[in-house]
Design a protein around this nucleic acid. Structure first.
Lengths: 342, 342
DNA sequence: TTGTACGCGTTATCAT
DNA sequence: ATGATAACGCGTACAA
């Protein structure tokens, strides 16, 4: 036992009367080990409360026991949900989570990320959208030999490297719901260019209108960038139209809150004068008035699954079932939708 | 140069024609070094693009270059703001951030934390409220030899280990503002027991009323737990009172959103029938309708300062100025306050 | 099935 | 001011 108080592999080996290597084998669950020896070593380990030193292992294995969360997502709630899901998956394992924001715009982004991954030698990284949609980033991870799993709104990679949601279909169902209520002039607050989710959600929007035989003039589409303010501005433009749309689908909840704001500012009552549907089901959706009908995106579950994919095989107890790579979003009906004029 | 592609200290030493130790001295800015030697070594380092291996350093120094964020805060936005502030401070340094949620309720919390700190050998940790208010945790860090800085609503520790805000005074000023507007029946939605911030804010509330000579019956104080739902329920009770309070101070924004919800449900108009002030200035405050008058808590700045305190002295360029340990919250006046009946 | 000797990349000790 | 050598704690050839 060293002066630091922490027992080392040497202590275990000495007390158990075996070599370091044997202890190492026990730790790493080597199959070729005498059952008796294993038991004896495990007893000593338990006795001493020995825990392998992560720093030493990292040096020897040239690989850290850290899982990185790489993201450039502007939505705080989304990021938190992902972290929560990851931490659930990592809880009780030897892995820790390190958070790494990146600057999508910066020309040096790829180089920065490469330096980070090479230096820290992460066990793996979870890539959040929108940076996860960048194939160069995935390739970079591959090149460096760093495991990765991408989160996204569509299947961008093979099942082992991807956890996706079905944004397009979920939005189609949401907008069909508006159509069923009798809406024909439906506005879209689109997400920012360069976000795959924005594209998928827009496609779902168009799918629904197309299937219903409703024309979609360009004027009914307003661009946003997933922020409250952009939703406000987009809604102002849409609500200026004559005739005014009777419903608006907003590509996320934060912008939907902006739409509600804009509607209220001009004295419109929701849902009587305007129906609204959002996307994400962030807390904001339940907190605005009226409560927002929205698409629930199981982001935390996706993140948990992604993290489990990353550490699959590295843990003692194997995850028997394969982690799914597709997650379904569902429509949450609250108070912001009604038939037009009701 | 190894096959991994990463140059090591040996490569630098060989090419520069010096010993490993000398290179090490250059890296660690040892004062006793020949200026010429240093320059030569630095050139080789730049040439090779050499970067010290963090894993090896961690092993040799028995200390990782990781800063932990230890928290049990239920508010996602608050946690994100803290992370953002920390990451700002850590950006460009050799430090990374690892996030570690703890379970305040669990009896094993201290032991869990001890294991975590002992194993990972963090350089330091930032303690977020409410777990930061637990003196045992601070003592644990001290015992283990892990640097720490606590965040909180009052000065719980010496300046080197504390970054605090002046919640009590900020709330006093906010409530005085209500009094100035002519409010006399003012309700309080208090925060949860065991949160120092809840206590400080309540004290500030009482300070203001006391100074104005306004009595505070127990019935005007409703307990909440910082969640939207608890704010809703607390408000329902307050709004049932006869006579009804004309203003409510909510100990955080999320509960204030619940208060707005409750008010709207019973047809009250804000601010005409009810004035509301929140605390935190989270995005939700600007997103509700009407925009919420609230106390801005400079949480991200506090976190940045806390992180800088943690790594002070470890970085190349010294932080010339001392980081402050007290941050002032300020009242943000928006649309949710008016004179009673207006 | 188990052990020996060495490597991982850095810092620390104690010389010179 | 600089260098040789030994830690740091664990994994891996290779041998036994």
């Amino acid at each position: 036992m060293q002066k630091t108080g922490q027992p080392t592999i040497n202590d275990v080996a000495r007390i158990a009367g075996v070599s370091k290597k044997t202890v190492s084998r026990v730790i790493n669950h080597s199959p070729l080990l005498n059952e008796e020896t294993r038991k004896r070593v495990e007893e000593v380990i338990a006795d001493l409360g020995y825990i392998p030193n992560p720093q030493a292992r990292a040096l020897a294995l040239r690989r850290n026991f850290l899982i990185g969360l790489v993201h450039d997502n502007p939505n705080a709630q989304t990021v938190m949900n992902v972290q929560q899901g990851m931490l659930e998956a990592l809880h009780g394992t030897e892995f820790e989570m390190v958070v790494r924001p990146v600057d999508r715009g910066a020309a040096t982004m790829l180089d920065d990320l490469r330096h980070f991954l090479e230096r820290q030698r992460l066990f793996g990284v979870l890539l959040m959208p929108p940076v996860s949609e960048n194939d160069m980033v995935a390739k970079l991870c591959d090149d460096i030999g760093c495991r990765y799993v991408r989160m996204g709104s569509a299947q961008l990679d093979d099942a082992a490297h991807m956890v996706a949601s079905n944004d397009r279909e979920a939005v189609r169902i949401a907008v069909e719901y508006l159509v069923e209520q009798g809406h024909e002039r439906i506005g879209l607050v689109a997400g920012p260019h360069g976000f795959r989710s924005a594209r998928e959600r827009r496609l779902g929007f168009e799918d629904a209108l197309g299937a219903a035989g409703i024309a979609l003039p360009r004027s009914l589409i307003a661009d946003g960038n997933y922020t409250f303010e952009s939703g406000l501005i987009a809604a102002e433009r849409l609500l200026d139209l004559v005739p005014r749309p009777t419903a608006i689908f907003s590509s996320n909840d934060e912008m939907a809150a902006g739409v509600i704001h804009a509607a209220r500012q001009r004295g419109l009552e929701i849902p009587r004068d305007l129906s609204i549907i959002g996307f994400d089901d962030t807390p904001i959706a339940a907190h605005v008035w009226p409560p927002l009908t929205t698409v629930r995106w199981p982001i935390a579950s996706m993140a948990r699954s992604a993290a489990l994919k990353l550490i699959a095989g590295a843990e003692e107890e194997e995850v028997g079932v394969e982690e799914p790579s597709l997650f379904l979003s569902t429509l949450i009906r609250r108070g912001s939708v009604a038939a037009p004029g009701r």
